[in-house]
Design a protein around this nucleic acid. Sequence first.
DNA 1: AATGAATGAGCCTTCATTCAT
DNA 2: TATGAATGAAGGCTCATTCAT
Lengths: 197, 197, 197, 197
Amino acid sequence: MPKVGMKPLRRKQLIAAAISSIHEYGLADATLARIARKAGVSTGIIHHYFDDKNDLIFETMRSLLEDLRVETVQRLRAANDPRGRVLAVVDASFAPQQFSVEVMTAWLSLYGSALNAPELRRIFNIYGARLASNLRHGFAALMPMAEARLAAEGAAALIDGLWLQFALKGDLPDPDHAHRLLSSYVDLQIAYHGARQ
Amino acid sequence: MPKVGMKPLRRKQLIAAAISSIHEYGLADATLARIARKAGVSTGIIHHYFDDKNDLIFETMRSLLEDLRVETVQRLRAANDPRGRVLAVVDASFAPQQFSVEVMTAWLSLYGSALNAPELRRIFNIYGARLASNLRHGFAALMPMAEARLAAEGAAALIDGLWLQFALKGDLPDPDHAHRLLSSYVDLQIAYHGARQ
Amino acid sequence: MPKVGMKPLRRKQLIAAAISSIHEYGLADATLARIARKAGVSTGIIHHYFDDKNDLIFETMRSLLEDLRVETVQRLRAANDPRGRVLAVVDASFAPQQFSVEVMTAWLSLYGSALNAPELRRIFNIYGARLASNLRHGFAALMPMAEARLAAEGAAALIDGLWLQFALKGDLPDPDHAHRLLSSYVDLQIAYHGARQ
Amino acid sequence: MPKVGMKPLRRKQLIAAAISSIHEYGLADATLARIARKAGVSTGIIHHYFDDKNDLIFETMRSLLEDLRVETVQRLRAANDPRGRVLAVVDASFAPQQFSVEVMTAWLSLYGSALNAPELRRIFNIYGARLASNLRHGFAALMPMAEARLAAEGAAALIDGLWLQFALKGDLPDPDHAHRLLSSYVDLQIAYHGARQ
DNA sequence: AATGAATGAGCCTTCATTCAT
DNA sequence: TATGAATGAAGGCTCATTCAT
């Protein structure tokens, strides 16, 4: 008798193995055989839970984005003021769960391949738009719209840029350092543009 | 008697075809056959000028980095004051030659694959260190070292982050917009931290 | 559920196809595609059962040597006296299973390529040492050690030399003729050197 | 102005490079590029002096056989009696020029590939027939034809077998040892079969 | 549901051969 | 005569995907 509810479990298990394989071997060498071995299952079974490899990669991506979204939503709920809302978005991106070597590596690898994969590109941009929107709303309560827009764009770029640098350096990511740099940026924007408001 | 001086020409030609192929098909599908066809040569010839595919990719990377380095050096020479030196570094990164869709796509694709390719990672980091150093020197003349260090780090992250976003959006990159955003960041840093000096 | 015990079967099947292909096309033109076709399987499957082509060739060689070893051991068991033991070794080398055109061709082809393949060379020499040892032991019971050593060496050379000639001539090998020639050699050695003992 | 008589020189030079390359890399990896480099000429030039690679290999083979033939003829001329004629043939095969590691390796490699190359096989057999004939004539003056035939066949096999073993062992060949073993064989044949004549 | 054997397309790479110079 | 750049066919190998069990 087949176990009930195995499907979501298996999918999570395989997605985790995919992330781990991408980190260990690189996206190009993260073969289904390796992913399956890492998940402790057979090669063939992957096609019971995903259409094909593209689908697995796509769902892996979606999973990363979803984790980040959930993290962001939770922190936004706990925020009390506009500045807190901005920093909530920032901190979500550097939360331990997101800001780990494995996840960052997977993310960056997927960025690279998204450029020629419309589906991937699409969800990336949806996430990007939502992040930007959150930041804009936060800043908008603190300064004029034009400045808020630029401040938000800058903050988003800073987040991505820091990620990129940590990922490439291969250092253990330092959430505190990232947080401080971003906080400083946010406060500077508020202090300068907010003062004129 | 064979033509003299063909080697550097052919290598440039093939590197250009590689960049173009990466943009068109993605790094994973930029096969030697496609690169050769785009360069108008046969598959086999690639191995006269490069050890293997990895070597071609590596040299493509090195070429991109070298172009950026040259661009940066030229603009640094033309700069008159510390602020100008910082902006020279910034503008070099958004110079038309660098800030084109083709080049950005190639760059981002290579970032992704560099994570598991020590050689690529190495030259990436050398470039990153030099960029950071240039920025630090510029800022150092305008504010205390501790602040200069953070300002430089922020500027570098902003540059990379903006690139990332442009690359992912697939928009035509807008150098002026990028320049304005970065200028604003630089001026804000100077205004705030420089004032206390 | 996959079939159990397929592995040794497939390996034997592929080794047989390799021997046959070497005979038909020569070692240089015994491509994996041809071997696979002869075995009635696809090209890819070979790499499920062997690391790579070298491994297949190596195992083919080992298989030939092992067949000869088994044949030799069996005949040695059935031998009653020293002379019988010497002739057992001789006859094993000319047993129908070994002394067929296909097998001889494969053997000679592999000799040629073993010269620059340390692994092949190694097992060849192990086999050669064992053959020589068997012959030496046989002769040693019949004559002084110094003579036995030379007689054994001569017998081994005769066996290999006859093989070579049959292989090159492409004649159907004639085990009886080979047996007679070797027997005569053995008897002459015994008659001459054994008399002095 | 082209040098006169360059053709035979170049051919010898290339054949020597071929032999050396076969020894160093094995027949399979003795590419025209390597042979050319070893001869100190360009790749393309080989096709001015040989039809194609097969032709070069064929001529290399013929050169080896011809050297052996000349050596044999010279020694036969110097021989005074039947026994001397037999040993002349034997010694020619183990003359330093023939019995060198490079030459033996080339020879054995070519044996292997001759099995599926009718042209090579043909000249091999012509040589073999001549060798056998020389030996037979020598023995025929010393014993009845039937015995002479077998003695000649045995001697030929011994020669080839010893070659094989030296080649495979990779030892420095020991002409004296080979000579002694063969001499002993010849003398034993004469002593035994010749006595009854 | 699960296995892993089997397929076959496609990739990188090598190499004999040709050809412009 | 000589070079070595260039071609293109073919080989070994990998891998997503399918399928019998």
